[in-house]
Amino acid sequence: MSEKAIDRRRPFAVNWWIRLGWLLALIYALYASYQLDVSWSRFVVGLGNGADFLGEMVPMDFSRWRLLVENLIETVQIAIIASAFGVALSLPVGLLAARNLMPAWVTWPARTCIALCRSFHPVIFAILFVKAVGFGPLAGILTLIFASIGFIGKLFAEAIEEISLKPLEALRAAGAPFMSVIVYAVLPQVLNRFIGFSSYQLDANLRNSTMVGIVGAGGIGGTLFAAFQRFDYDFLAAILVSIIALVMLSEYISQRVKRVFQ
């Protein structure tokens, strides 16, 4: 460090590489906008449409509140069932995918399964499940179970790979069978983080279950999509406001629950 001469006149030297990076980003933005046919004039036209759109939304239409409440309850049901099964299934999958506990021939299939669950967006799963089990909440539940396995399974496996191996060694030296090693040495070290991931996933499932209905997998998404297609924007505003309220409520509840488990 000491050989590097300090420029006393300009202590804050210009980093030309960073400027070049910003310039490249700008050039890319212009190129991509050209490719995508994104232009200022279309944007300005859109702003006018946006003003009309907001204007039509303003007196929110809560007259069909019965339908709204039924749909919200279905959405919550999908999220709860999917989280329960997803969390229960991701526990063994995460254990199997941990490279410090299992041999390679066990972790590879488990990691592939997690990667498959993670790389497709829930909507794509929802489309396939709607074809497989028909329209309705069951398709949404199956979709979100897969999404949960992908998310919690990966984080749980990473958490297990970071644990201290000393309690395991002690138990193994004392001749404990495999299940006892898992229950008394592995789980106590990771259970707190697992609960954290699970409560986050319950929130995420609730958000996603408002959307799987767009492709027919149950919940409030179907009604939302129908309101869009019928230009029923005042009812749409009511749906959006209730979704945001539901998500905020669930975030508040999960914060309270996390405090109980700390």
Partner: peptide, 10 residues
Amino acid sequence: SVNTLVWALL
């Protein structure tokens, strides 16, 4: 709190 697909619809 608004999902990507809902933003896209908007």
